[in-house]
Design a protein around this nucleic acid. Structure first.
Lengths: 150, 150
DNA sequence: CACAATTCAGTTGTGCACAATATATTTGTC
DNA sequence: GACAAATATATTGTGCACAACTGAATTGTG
């Protein structure tokens, strides 16, 4: 690197390690999830819906995953086509679409139950380090939210 | 969340905070880079090429950024179309394509020089925390590399 | 030299992300 | 109760990511 612009070094910024690490983890998940017929974003949708227990709207899911309807709608349609969830308009407010996991969708849960452990073991971080990393990432997210008050 | 499958909690896994934080940071960069006519992956390509100083092959760039030719080729073509870099076959080995930043491409460097600082200030982490985060992410990447020896 | 194996970039196809926009529904306000 | 403003989702268009494949160029081996 030329000595000028040291702040433009790939490794001097947080963004690149973050971006590369995120893609590496997603890739690793994808390989395991493919065996269950799921992509990573589809898996995230199911995680959120499994957690909620009750039917959830597209907007609520988007708020949880920080994804907009332009991303979610096609993902949800593929999950519906695969029989993992049902989508129906909320009778009480026809603008909303309620997402409900089907029995087939609940079965996926057992199928992927051991995926996270499989990833964690290959990651080379202790439980304490993982917790520390989670904490730093959470604080970063909050910081980014706060500095753009919508 | 139902009490079974605690390991499937969205926040229990590292992947989701990592994924959400990475997208949040990329989004923030994109907003600033758009003013310079660059997308985030295009910016990463230029960062790597600026660092190298000498012409670089597509393969070398891919190794640095951890991206494959299927991703890079269209990005590089757009950078070429914008006049930021030149692509030519290596006369010594016609399989390779050499990437060279044009004068116009070098000018982009001044244009984006203050972008990283603008991001960092909004991130709410101290310099020490940022360094710690970088270190954890790097070790994670190494761990993931090691556990899949290609 | 012949030629199989390897390397390198490009192409194709699928699936996100996200901005901008469109459309339908609901909610205030008068 | 009309109707403007707000809300919720869907659609469109652009640009990645990445797996799988193609084809050209190079290298290793006999």
């Amino acid at each position: 690197m030329t000595t000028s612009f040291p702040q433009l070094g790939l490794d001097a910024q947080l963004c690149f390690p973050l971006y590369a690490a995120s893609r590496a983890v997603t890739r690793r998940y994808s390989a395991l999830l493919a065996q269950a017929g799921l992509t990573y974003p589809q898996y995230l949708c199911l995680l959120a819906l499994w957690e909620a227990d009750d039917p959830m709207t597209v907007g609520e899911l988007g708020a949880r995953l920080r994804l907009d309807s332009g991303t979610l709608t096609p993902v949800l349609k593929r999950l519906e086509a695969a029989g993992h969830l049902g989508r129906r308009r909320d009778p009480a407010d026809e603008r909303r679409v309620l997402l409900e996991v089907t029995p087939t969708g609940w079965e996926r849960r057992d199928r992927v139950a051991d995926v996270p452990l499989g990833i964690a073991s290959g990651m080379g971080l202790s439980e304490a380090e993982a917790a520390q990393l989670r904490s730093l990432l959470d604080r970063m997210l909050v910081g980014l939210d706060d500095s753009v008050p919508d």
